[in-house]
Computed example of a mutant assay.
Amino acid sequence: MDVDPWSPAFVADPYPAYARLRARGRAHWFEPSGQFLVPRYADVSALLRDRRLGRTYLHRFTHEEFGRTPPPAAHEPFHVLNGNGMLDLEAPDHTRIRRLVSKAFTPRTVEKLAPVVARLAEELVDGLVEAGGGDLLTEVAEPLPVAVIAEMLGIPPADRGLLRPWSAAICAMFELNPDEETVRRAVAASVEFSAYLRELIARRRSAPGEDLVSALIAAHDEGDRLSEQEMISTCVLLLNAGHEATVNSTVNGWWTLFRHPEQLAALRAGEVALSTAVEELLRYDTPLQMFERWVLDDVEIGDLTIPRGSEVALLFGSANRDPARFDRPDELDLSRTDNPHISFGAGVHYCLGAPLARLELAASFGELLRRAPTMRLTAEPQWRPGYVIRGLRELRVEL
């Protein structure tokens, strides 16, 4: 099997390998990570909605009952933080927490953020234009979603520099087979970030504001409230999921546009709707290539029965290029309207922050198209070694 998530060549372009994988069948055992890889759109979409699979198994089984080894005690801070977030919970806890968080994180909340997002995008692009170029990742793509989430949570500007390093350290744990140094950094970041948020929550309890933390404290449903740990895990999840995806969608999207100059020219000329173009960029090169699920009850994929206790890896990047669902899937078509990509997932774990991500992407792409119409690449970028969350090290541009 030519899937190799640790190979720079595969990370740079996994799509030919995905095509071969789809052609060979619906599910494939992958020994290096101990997972079944699922590459086809129909299967990925169906399994995201299948309640026989879960992001956790601890609501039904102990580690031992599930045939798994408990994580070492030294890793506990990371697992407590991650395990109390919506993304890694199943019903009834997931249902309860998502319902409560949805009371605070409403479409109206996102709508009210629109002027803030527009202002931040304008300021960041102004800086890039005044400098005549630079690294699009560090100058625009990265600071925008971090600033938006920080603004939402009510984190003071002086503290915002702490967020990205914490997030990067924690998200590195989602790669396949992380080493001990990665684990050590993730645990340290989990301890520090949790302590910071615990203090912030205490301040908001005594002096509520207009921010999301205050709204999470106030959110209740039939007398039920979020615990402090659930609030902490929710805030970390909103930052990690909210900005990692948006940062990589921005730089991966611009790298795609630079390699398709005719499509970029059409977008700059206003011949293509920006919102439609953003959806196609998300489909064409999604930042989240793989989403993992535990098999809680035996599940059949074609002629193969995958037993309880297994782990499946749903290949989003492959599903989004499946010719059984998308016409000419390996072609970038910014005007594509039949585009049910699964870059934001599906089912009960569909990304709660998808409207905010779309708002941020439209703001930054729109501002760059308007203010930097001659922006061009100055050097071919290199990919970071991570595969699950896949993005560039930098994207150097000039105007």
Results as ranks from 00 to 15, higher is better:
residue 197 L to I: 01
residue 183 V to F: 10
residue 139 E to Q: 14
residue 215 A to R: 13
residue 146 V to F: 07
residue 223 G to V: 03
residue 190 S to P: 12
residue 230 E to Y: 04
residue 169 A to G: 06
residue 142 E to L: 15
residue 168 A to S: 13
residue 185 R to V: 01
residue 144 L to A: 11
residue 100 L to P: 09
residue 150 A to H: 02
residue 141 A to T: 10
residue 219 A to P: 02
residue 101 V to C: 08
residue 102 S to T: 13
residue 169 A to H: 15
residue 227 S to Q: 01
residue 150 A to V: 03
residue 179 D to T: 02
residue 116 V to S: 04
residue 114 A to F: 00
residue 168 A to I: 12
residue 119 R to Q: 14
residue 104 A to C: 04
residue 100 L to Q: 08
residue 137 L to S: 08
residue 162 L to R: 15
residue 193 F to T: 06
residue 151 E to T: 15
residue 116 V to K: 08
residue 181 E to P: 04
residue 134 G to Q: 08
residue 124 L to M: 12
residue 150 A to T: 03
residue 161 G to I: 11
residue 118 A to V: 03
residue 146 V to W: 08
residue 111 E to Y: 11
residue 123 E to S: 13
residue 212 L to E: 04
residue 172 A to M: 05
residue 195 A to N: 05
residue 146 V to N: 09
residue 200 L to C: 09
residue 138 T to G: 07
residue 120 L to S: 00
residue 194 S to W: 00
residue 126 D to Q: 11
residue 153 L to C: 10
residue 113 L to I: 06
residue 198 R to D: 08
residue 200 L to M: 14
residue 130 E to I: 07
residue 127 G to P: 08
residue 155 I to Y: 03
residue 126 D to M: 03
residue 230 E to A: 01
residue 177 N to L: 10
residue 170 I to Q: 07
residue 126 D to W: 04
residue 134 G to N: 05
residue 106 T to V: 07
residue 222 E to V: 00
